[in-house]
Write a protein that binds this DNA or RNA. Structure first.
Lengths: 346, 346
DNA sequence: CCGGCAAATGAAACCGCTTTCAGTCTACGC
DNA sequence: GCGTAGACTGAAAGCGGTTTCATTTGCCGG
């Protein structure tokens, strides 16, 4: 409510009480250059002066204007995080980890879900503003990556391996987890009675898990027939539908299912319960992800744990590394999974 | 570290191919002022000129530098969204709605979970950068709001009613939802056999729901005794513990529970199942929130639906409104709830 | 006592854009 | 033919910082 620059008359009470580096400089009887140095490289200024400036800064509550700062330094300490969709426990865990890590590293997180109906305008702003971008890609829609590459923005990709194309990558190590789950099922079930019920065939995770499923069965001498592998969507409905379909081929007995994720697994469990199929006696089910659902459902779901928070954190930490050292060597981090054996499989 | 303007020799291939307004101006043989006008107020420039400039802009792929822009206009089109914690279905829905709405309005979303271990430094940047802030406050830790007020940042508060203190607010309309749920339970259960099992006593939602619970019982002529209302935490464990505790007072029969949220309700259902208490015959349970869990659990959970995505969207839309018109009248939006009757209560 | 070097500081350029202000040009009325 | 309003346009002043470069000062050895 005051503080006018050049020649002006105060009309409104002024909604900009923002104190600038200039105000600090005047108050501390130094130049703005010195104030700037106090904040960015105190070793360049005499201790006595620095102290005086600091006192003023604190007293008047000075905060550097990030726009002016960004204009010079070309960095905002804001990271972009683009997800295919923000939904469910899964993504919230991911974000949680990313948020914690970026906070730890002194960055902010700009989130954005699938920009199907993108305005290029909007996107432009974000691209110019953020220091780096983490993109989760679960199906072959690599447009964001293309955009990021063109804009030379430091980028990290999740879920799709692009490290041999020069982009840092964070992956969930699907294969060992799947293998472990299948081997667990094989302890009680013959390979020809094992089924993989996945999500969308386009989905990278589903693809990897299906492949690992096949490999695991092949390794024990059984090449799965097409009917043993089914694709649908990551929903309980699909799990129910699959089981009901399966029922038409006769009663279920000595059967094992490796589901593409926990939701599918839960759908299967529910449909089995509705039909009076005993779990785990007649039907053994293993899920994937270990969302909280897995422990809440009865019987408790055996599932492959995916440390989503760690994935988010790893993505951010990789991204920060690249932002701060553009020439760092390209890395690919694989997050290990872990089989959580519960009641649905034994 | 490279790319100097003026007299320069190219050392590195230059990692900043960024084309500036100046480049466009030269290429289109106009002044930068005209380019700026073409982008911001085309009516001020001759159609022929505008067309030529637009062509160049498109051809060279010019995007205004947001820092320079922000320095002049003092807006970033970035909104801050601060949550107590990013966790579970609940918050991901909230974010989902907020994200969609802010995208629709041409803003970006900067998210941040509880800054317990805050660095003031970090916070400073965000505060200077964002155009407005949405804060969810679930317990009496109003520090963020205080900060926002001091910084004169447009602010919207979620979950705590501050509209009479001059801050736009978005609330979940807990009372009618609770009343509806209690009345539903009263159809089958006597008021003295009804229990409220809430989350933390500090939590605003729990407080409101507990109060509405009391009011609903009082309205039918029964003042609840202290034992009918219990506080704990928003977890299944607390639900289980509560039920087990309750069991010590004898077998459960003709009893109804109004839980503070779905997770507590699920804990109660599980503990009941473990003890062979029949739901809904002996025990009727109503939850709150209607997370996806409610439909996935068996018996399906009767629960009060809270449209979290709508809450997030409403917060953003209110915030945008205030950002763009600081003098708009203070508003308080109450999001209606809806009782979803399923199998756990009838 | 003086030259010279290092430490401390300030002046000023610059980052890329918006916006005011003044100037040029055209077309029109008289 | 001339004055002038109105339409376009450009020069230039910031916005609030960072950083280079030059200047001033203090201190040392010779």
């Amino acid at each position: 409510m005051n503080r006018k620059a050049g020649p002006s008359k105060s009309d409104v009470p002024a909604s900009r009480p923002a104190v600038s580096i200039h105000d600090v400089a005047v108050e501390a009887r130094v130049s703005i250059a010195t104030v700037s140095r106090v904040m960015n490289n105190p070793s360049l200024v005499a201790p006595k002066t620095a102290e005086r400036v600091m006192e003023v800064i604190k007293r008047v509550g000075y905060t550097p204007n990030p726009f002016a700062q960004g204009l010079m330094t070309r960095e905002s300490r804001v990271l972009g995080f683009a997800l295919p969709d923000i939904h469910g426990e899964f993504y919230s865990e991911l974000l949680r980890g990313a948020d914690a890590e970026s906070r730890r590293q002194g960055y902010h997180l700009l989130v954005s879900s699938e920009p199907r109906s993108e305005e290029p305008d909007l996107r432009g702003l974000a691209f110019g503003l953020i220091d780096g971008l983490a993109v989760m890609i679960t199906n072959p829609d690599a447009e964001m990556v293309r955009l990021a590459r063109e804009s030379k923005l430091p980028t990290v990709v999740l879920d799709l391996d692009m490290h041999d194309r020069g982009i840092d990558t964070v992956l969930v190590d699907n294969e060992p987890g799947t293998r472990e789950g299948v081997l667990h099922l094989l302890e009680t079930t013959r390979p020809e009675n094992l089924y993989f019920v996945g999500g969308s065939e386009d989905n990278f995770d589903t693809q990897h898990r299906a492949r690992a499923f096949t490999a695991a069965l092949t390794a024990v001498g059984h090449t799965p027939i097409p009917g043993q592998i089914a694709y649908g969507s990551y929903t309980p409905e699909w799990g129910r539908d699959w089981l009901n379909l399966h029922f038409q081929r006769g009663p279920i007995r000595n059967t094992g299912v490796f589901a593409g994720n926990d939701e599918i697994a839960i759908g299967i469990i529910q449909a089995a319960a509705d039909r009076g199929t005993s779990i785990p006696h007649d039907l053994r089910v293993v899920g994937f992800d270990d969302t909280r659902l897995a422990q809440l459902v009865r019987p408790r779901l055996t599932t492959v744990r995916v440390p989503m928070a760690d994935v988010g954190a790893a993505a951010v930490s990789l991204l920060v590394r690249r932002v701060e050292d553009p020439d760092a060597e390209i890395k690919c981090i694989r997050m290990p999974t872990k089989l959580m054996i519960r009641d649905s499989s034994r």
